[in-house]
């Protein structure tokens, strides 16, 4: 599962979804892999304003990536900064979690990721 996806996921438990503690989910014991993917500047520019930058910073820091700028770069800033563009492309689209779990800080439930596939099906007592 690519890290970009994590920016659009929260806990599947109904009572958690309205709490701020449930987002973002926290990677735990994760194995990361990096795929080489042709960069698509237009896609990245267009998606950037739709990201929750603070959540992305949390995710990046929890996974040990170098610190991101305090706020999302504008399209112009990104066009002028090749390294930042490359870093974001790598972080968001090329980096995958292959094994591990995602933990909700509100309820503590842990969602498994196996072979790159995250499973959000809830046990009966949490539905």
């Amino acid at each position: 599962m690519k890290l970009l996806t994590l920016n659009f996921l929260t806990c599947a438990v109904k009572s958690c979804k309205s709490t701020s503690a449930s987002f973002p989910l926290h990677p735990k014991d994760c194995e990361l892999v990096s795929d080489t993917l042709k960069s698509d500047p237009k896609l990245l520019f267009n998606i950037l304003p739709r990201l929750d930058w603070s959540a992305l910073s949390t995710t990046a820091s929890e996974l040990g990536f170098p610190g991101l700028p305090p706020s999302a770069p504008t399209k112009e800033e990104l066009e002028a900064n090749e390294k930042l563009f490359h870093d974001l492309h790598t972080l968001l689209l090329e980096t995958h979690i292959s094994e591990g779990s995602l933990v909700c800080a509100n309820c503590g439930h842990s969602y498994k990721i196996k072979e790159g596939i995250a499973n959000f099906l809830l046990p009966n007592h949490l539905v």
């Binding site: 599962m1 996806t5 659009f8 996921l9 929260t10 806990c11 599947a12 438990v13 109904k14 979804k17 987002f23 969602y111 596939i117 995250a118 499973n119 959000f120 099906l121 809830l122 539905v127």
Partner: peptide
């Protein structure tokens, strides 16, 4: 992702 339609893990 694997998820249930009635319990989507989205904000």
């Amino acid at each position: 992702i694997v998820a249930d339609t009635l319990s989507l893990p989205h904000q």
